[in-house]
Simulated assay, not measured.
Amino acid sequence: MSGYLTTHVLDTARGCPATGLPITLFRFEGAARHKLVEMTTNADGRTNSPILPQADFSPGIYELVFHAGHYLRASGQAGADPLFLDEVPIRFGMSDAAAHYHVPLLLSPFGYSTYRGS
């Protein structure tokens, strides 16, 4: 079985999934950054399918960019420009070609956290 990557976003300020938040996935090859896919979170704060499915998975260095500003503006939490959090990049490595990697984002207008989930 090949590995794959999933993600989801929870709005910790409101205590609910972050619906409608755009996410971009990049892969690094040396210093070059290549955009792989753009998706938007659904009503559960997840993407409708793995952001990196088994067929496209390979070990390497990746970056998820969560477009938090778009979501915070749409949910009325943005405040004045410039936003404290607009884009949240999370760069991480995936080394196990058969593993499920899950990288969630816990988001509020003034802070975030992440971890390797299951």
Rank of each mutant, 00 (worst) to 15 (best):
I90N: 14
H70A: 13
L10S: 08
G45W: 06
L21C: 00
S113W: 13
G117C: 12
G45R: 02
A55G: 02
L5G: 07
E38P: 00
A43V: 14
P50T: 02
I23A: 01
A43K: 15
T12Y: 00
L72Y: 04
E38K: 11
M39L: 15
P104V: 07
L105A: 09
D11F: 06
L52T: 07
G117F: 11
M94N: 11
E87M: 13
S49W: 09
M39Q: 15
R27K: 15
T19M: 06
T6C: 02
D96E: 05
G20F: 00
P104L: 01
H67A: 09
H100T: 06
P104W: 06
G30M: 07
G93P: 04
R91W: 05
T47R: 06
R116D: 06
A31F: 03
T7Y: 02
Y71L: 04
V88L: 05
Y115I: 06
V9G: 08
T47M: 08
D96N: 12
V65E: 14
V65R: 12
G69W: 07
A97C: 08
Y112D: 01
I51T: 00
G20K: 00
F26D: 04
S108Y: 00
Y62D: 10
H67T: 05
H70G: 04
L25A: 09
P109F: 10
Q77D: 06
E29R: 11
R33S: 01
D44T: 09
A18D: 10
G69E: 14
F110N: 13
R73K: 09
F84G: 02
G30L: 05
G76I: 07
H102R: 10
Y4M: 12
F84Y: 15
D81S: 10
P17K: 01
R27V: 10
M1S: 11
G76T: 07
E87I: 01
S58E: 15
R14F: 01
P53T: 02
I51W: 10
E63L: 04
A68V: 10
H8Y: 15
Y115F: 14
A32M: 06
Y112W: 15
G30P: 02
P89N: 06
R73G: 03
G79C: 03
G45S: 06
K35W: 08
A97R: 09
P22S: 04
D96V: 10
V88G: 03
L36C: 03
P109G: 08
A98R: 08
Y115C: 14
G69C: 08
A18N: 05
H67C: 01
A98T: 15
M39W: 02
M1P: 14
S58V: 11
S113Q: 14
G3E: 11
I90D: 11
T19V: 14
M39Y: 04
G15E: 00
R46N: 13
T6E: 13
A68N: 09
S95V: 11
N48C: 07
T24R: 15
A13L: 09
S2L: 07
V9P: 05
Y4C: 11
A32L: 05
T24I: 11
N48A: 08
G45N: 14
L21E: 01
S49G: 00
A80N: 07
D96S: 02
P109M: 08
P109A: 01
R116I: 04
H102Y: 04
N48Q: 02
E87R: 13
P53F: 12
M1K: 13
A78Q: 02
A55M: 03
E38L: 03
D96H: 05
A80Y: 01
A18S: 12
G45H: 03
L107G: 03
L5I: 10
T7P: 09
